[in-house]
Design a protein around this nucleic acid. Structure first.
Length: 661
DNA sequence: TTACTAATCCCTT
DNA sequence: AAGGGATTAGTAA
């Protein structure tokens, strides 16, 4: 042995010292490390060459390692006594395998070098290991004495045992990961299969290819392409995060996978639509849908100045404008890619982050499965936008009133994104076509554009304690009728206390789309008395296939003058209130193409029929400035005030539309 | 072959 | 110097 030798405790060994090279003869580390470059087999062949042996002997004098190799390979020169060692070191040349065999043949069969500790020894070692995998020197000495093992052997044993433990653990972990991986792969495959063999939504049977329109088939292909893109994104994201990211979520208890058909639309946004949908103007594009958004991390900012290849970790809060529908918090990775000339894709997929989820009645963490859009340039200068939205959500936390709407996709689904996008693009087109000029006497679109965006996105708010309150109710009137009623300034006195009991006058009207309902207007209430100046109200209304809004805020007349003469609208304090109107379910859309007249008979007004009954879900939201001191406390009285305000307003609306229950 | 184990080398602490 | 990671070598299943 290279070190001080050991006792052979095997049954036929009898505790004899089998080999010994004095430990003190170990070479310096430098010599050893050089030696390691030689492989055992090479060493063997070198040793068996007589011509080389002398030089090598000199070189390797006293090297325990080579001594061992010599023993191992020269045919059983084991158990050599010290004298033998000295003999060989003296250069007698008997390192040669042949001569070694001769020597061996004379001696009785020696114990092989292979050795294992006895079961008793192992048992003792194991029992100590169980208590203490890191015994100190004293414990090891004690054990070595008891087991007749060298303390070095005990040390090695523990060392090896620990590494063994570690590899076992690793192996176990690996097998778990592999299982998980297999499971995800299987799930992935089955979902992909399901996509390929779609089930008919109407009858539940397999959908015949002939059943679906050519357009739908195109959408399916688009969908599959998006899916492939997602898989690549997930792989990339996983590499970045150092853990696997699945593009398909594990269904959690009480969560229902929810799929919404794709929406497709041709938009006049041109190729810069890609830019708008990818990052910077995302939140501005969908102000009513995105309550808040931020980019947590930019993994890749894209190639050059384009957004192509951009990969970022994002956070967003998505909303439906009603207190009865919790805001959805989503954390996702967004990948932007130019597919081909004139084709761009923006793909989002949820990742699990360790962010504390603050789930409550009004806030819920939601998983966004592969979602996104493809923007495709069309020959007519428009862009075709295909939107896919997949999300997993718990239907139970959504109020019964809103479930049909949400499950139809008009709440968080592709339809709503597309409807909003269409409306916004229309508005942009109008604003773009009006070249802003500096010498304007009235409100110019350029000014208004900034102002109206701000009023929704980031209003300059008056300082102080603001009280906001909102409620949602079902009304047996069509969304269009309700919308038309609320935005009619001549009927304002029927519900608005700001009207002072009289009609309002529309002073300015700026169209933001083809539909009359998409506009910004400035209203003037009739004066309470001769001494008082009349109040101004800035109002924006909008309508698209997904729903409509009437939002208004009283404005300061001096501030309005500043804005109208070209001042900065960012300094105008706005505290908006208003209404959000959505259909009570699918099939009663309020799109601009829908007939205004409600032809549906509404015989039963007392019975609340939910689900595409042609009625509306009205959300009323009020904000009032309770106190202009930011330090002021909220009082019970002010809460009651705003509550009264809301319920009175709802009652008045119901009365005016003849639908009191 | 693979799995296991005793031991070694070499590096970090 | 001690401990640990990587590696080696002998052997069993």
């Amino acid at each position: 042995m290279s070190f001080g030798g050991f006792f052979d405790n095997s049954p036929n060994g009898g505790g004899r010292v089998v080999t010994d090279i004095p430990y003190s003869n170990m070479p310096a580390a430098g010599a050893l490390s050089q030696q390691r470059l030689v492989s055992p087999s090479l060493a063997k062949s070198m040793f068996s060459s007589p011509g080389l042996s002398l030089a090598l002997q000199t070189n390797m004098e006293g090297q325990g390692e080579m001594g061992r190799i010599g023993e191992n390979y020269d045919g059983g020169l084991v158990g050599r006594a010290k004298e033998d060692e000295y003999e060989s070191r003296s250069g007698s040349g008997d390192m040669d395998g042949g001569s070694g065999d001769d020597q061996d043949a004379e001696k009785p069969p020696r114990k092989k070098r292979y050795h294992r500790h006895t079961p008793q020894q192992i048992q003792e070692l194991e029992s100590l290991f169980k208590e203490c995998p890191h015994p100190d020197e004293k414990q090891r000495m004690e054990l070595s004495r008891r087991l007749s093992l060298e303390s070095r052997q005990v040390k090695f044993w523990f060392q090896n045992r620990r590494t063994q433990m570690k590899t076992q653990l690793e192996r176990h972990e690996n097998s778990i990961l592999r299982q998980e991986n297999d499971k995800l792969r299987a799930e992935n495959m089955s979902i992909r299969d399901a996509m390929r063999n779609p089930i008919c939504n109407n009858c539940g049977g397999p959908a015949m290819l002939g059943d679906v329109s050519l357009e739908e088939q195109h959408l399916r292909i688009e969908n599959a392409r998006l899916k492939d893109e997602l898989d690549r994104v997930c792989a990339l994201a996983g590499k970045f995060l150092g853990r696997p990211v699945s593009s398909l979520g594990n269904s959690m208890p009480h969560q229902m996978p929810h799929q919404i058909p794709n929406s497709s639309l041709e938009l006049g946004v041109g190729s810069n639509g890609f830019d708008a949908l990818s990052t910077s103007r995302w939140a501005e594009m969908f102000p009513c849908m995105i309550a808040r958004t931020s980019t947590a991390d930019v993994i890749s900012s894209g190639l050059g100045s384009t957004r192509n290849g951009a990969l970022q970790l994002m956070h967003a809060e998505l909303q439906v404008l009603s207190p009865l529908v919790p805001i959805r918090e989503v954390n996702f990775i967004r990948f932007c890619k130019q597919h081909a000339e004139g084709v761009w894709a923006v793909v989002d997929v949820s990742v699990d982050t360790n962010r504390e989820s603050q789930n409550s009645a009004s806030f819920v963490t939601c998983r966004r499965l592969p979602s996104g859009c493809v923007v495709q340039d069309m020959p007519n200068g428009y862009s075709k936008v295909t939107w896919v939205e997949h999300a997993e959500y718990d239907a139970n936390i959504i109020h019964r009133l809103y479930r049909p709407l949400i499950s139809s996709g008009m709440g968080f689904g592709a339809q709503r994104w597309i409807a909003t996008l269409e409306r916004q693009c229309e508005c942009l087109a109008i604003l773009m076509s009006t070249v802003p000029t500096n010498d304007h006497s009235a409100i110019e679109p350029a000014d208004v554009r900034v102002m109206t965006r701000k009023s929704i996105d980031d209003p300059g708010e008056p300082p102080g304690v603001v009280l906001s309150a909102a409620t949602s109710v079902w009304l047996p009137v069509s969304p269009q009728k309700l919308f038309d009623f609320l935005r009619d300034e001549r009927l304002r006195s029927e519900w608005d206390i700001l009207s002072n009991g009289g009609p309002m006058q529309e002073m300015t009207h700026i169209a933001k789309g083809r539909d009359q309902g998409n506009c910004v207007s400035l209203l003037r209430a009739s004066a309470m008395n001769a001494n008082q100046s009349s109040m101004l109200i800035l109002q924006e209304t909008c309508i698209d296939a997904a729903g409509s809004l009437v939002v208004y805020a009283p404005v300061d007349i001096p501030a309005m003058h500043v804005v109208m003469s070209g001042g900065d609208s960012a300094y105008v304090a706005l505290l908006p209130s208003g209404f959000a109107i959505v259909p009570d379910g699918p099939g009663s859309g309020t799109g601009p193409n829908e007939p205004t007249a409600d032809s549906k008979p509404n015989g039963t007004t007392t019975q609340i029929s939910v689900g595409g009954g042609g009625g509306s879900l009205l959300t009323v939201a009020f904000q009032i400035l309770v106190n202009s001191l930011p330090t002021a406390k909220l009082t019970v009285e002010s809460v009651e005030t705003v509550n009264n305000l809301i319920s009175c307003t709802v009652q008045k609306i119901k009365a005016a539309l003849h639908c009191e229950s």
